[in-house]
């Protein structure tokens, strides 16, 4: 028999290292043709940080994304941005790049204000131009940078950011270990086959509060990838270790989800802006996976009326649990 079930998984996740300093630094060089070089130690491992950092620099400097080059993760060239871990790079390195870009921008704005005889407070950079209040002035940013250079002023900026945290009390763990938290709710729908014990995940809704989505498609990509990795964690994956030896160190024996296994996924981006984040952003890389197994386990319990306490929820364990429950209820009836 096939039974449907639904389960909720909530999660929270402190962005950055736990109760420890984890700063990131960046340099921004605003060049006299209006292009930008961003130097950041942040390693893009596929999650898209270089793209996000380019977007933040472009936004801050009022230039198009095509004008920004990000040089990342070369210790001879780029400042330390800390590890690509703890879902920290958008929040922490994003801030470092924003601050560095703001410093470079200050020079341009000061020069533009002088050149156009405007109060600096009303001058901004947008679309490659100098703006006064809400109007473009017609003066190009690159001309102002060229003017800076001719006067011996470099439009360089350095920035760094370390999230505000406290140490935890060693006995009570009391303190503020993170500057901000990401939140998420996932709802999973499963179909459980009571004969075979096979669980099929039919749908996952994943709502993630990322503060602000710098790049919504990237955020969705993180969420979908996390859901599928979480589904593998819930149902499929286990490194089998016997007497210290890994018994399945191969892709033929350690199985992960394939394209045929995926449910329909519905990522939902929630933006509860974080004031200390770059343009309100927090993080999403790990949160994407954190509640998935929980939601699936709850959906399986809902479907079967039986709850399992050991991950992964393999067909063997499901069938055994169904049998045990049947035996128990038989005993109950007879007794």
């Amino acid at each position: 028999m096939k039974k449907h079930g639904y389960g909720i998984g909530n999660m929270w996740y402190g962005v950055g290292n736990t109760a420890a300093p984890n700063p990131s630094g960046a340099f921004v060089d605003f060049l006299d043709d209006g292009t930008v070089i961003v130097l950041s130690g942040c390693a893009d491992i596929g999650q898209g940080s270089s793209t996000v950092l380019a977007q933040i620099a472009a936004e801050t400097l009022g230039v198009g994304l095509e004008n920004v080059a990000v040089i990342a993760a070369d210790t001879e060239v780029t400042p330390d941005a800390g590890a690509t871990s703890a879902s920290r790079q958008t929040y922490i390195s994003g801030n470092a790049v924003r601050f560095a870009a703001e410093k470079a921008r200050e020079q341009v704005i000061a020069q533009a204000a002088e050149r156009l005889n405007l109060p600096a407070d009303n001058v901004s950079l947008k679309d490659g131009q100098i703006w006064h209040q809400d109007e473009p002035t017609g003066t190009k940013i690159q001309d102002v940078i060229a003017q800076c250079r001719s006067k011996g002023i470099l439009t360089l900026g350095q920035g760094w950011f370390n999230p505000v945290t406290t140490k935890l009390d060693p006995l009570t763990g009391q303190g503020a270990p993170y500057a901000t938290y990401a939140f998420a709710t996932q709802v999973a729908e499963v179909e459980a086959d009571t004969e075979t014990g096979v669980i099929e995940v039919k749908r996952i809704v994943a709502a993630h509060d990322v503060g602000r989505a710098i790049n919504p498609q990237n955020v969705e990509g993180q969420i979908e990838g996390g859901c599928i990795m979480g589904m593998g964690y819930a149902l499929l994956e286990e490194v089998a270790v016997n007497q210290g030896r890994i018994e399945n160190p191969a892709l033929s024996t350690y199985l992960i989800p394939t394209a045929l296994d995926i449910p329909e996924m519905f990522p939902v981006i929630v933006e509860d802006e974080e004031p200390s984040g770059p343009y309100g952003a927090k993080g999403v890389g790990e949160p994407a996976l954190v509640p998935t197994a929980a939601a699936i386990a709850n959906a399986v319990a809902d479907a079967l009326g039986i709850r399992l306490y050991d991950l992964p929820l393999t067909p063997e364990k499901i069938v055994a649990a169904i049998r045990a429950a049947a035996e128990e209820s038989e005993l109950g009836l007879n007794g």
Binding site: T180, Y181, F183, A184, T185, V268, E274
Partner: peptide
């Protein structure tokens, strides 16, 4: 204080 989005994600997901 700020950016505590769990009420919103719970409502949105549901």
């Amino acid at each position: 204080s700020d950016s505590v989005g769990i009420a919103k994600t719970l409502a949105a997901a549901w």
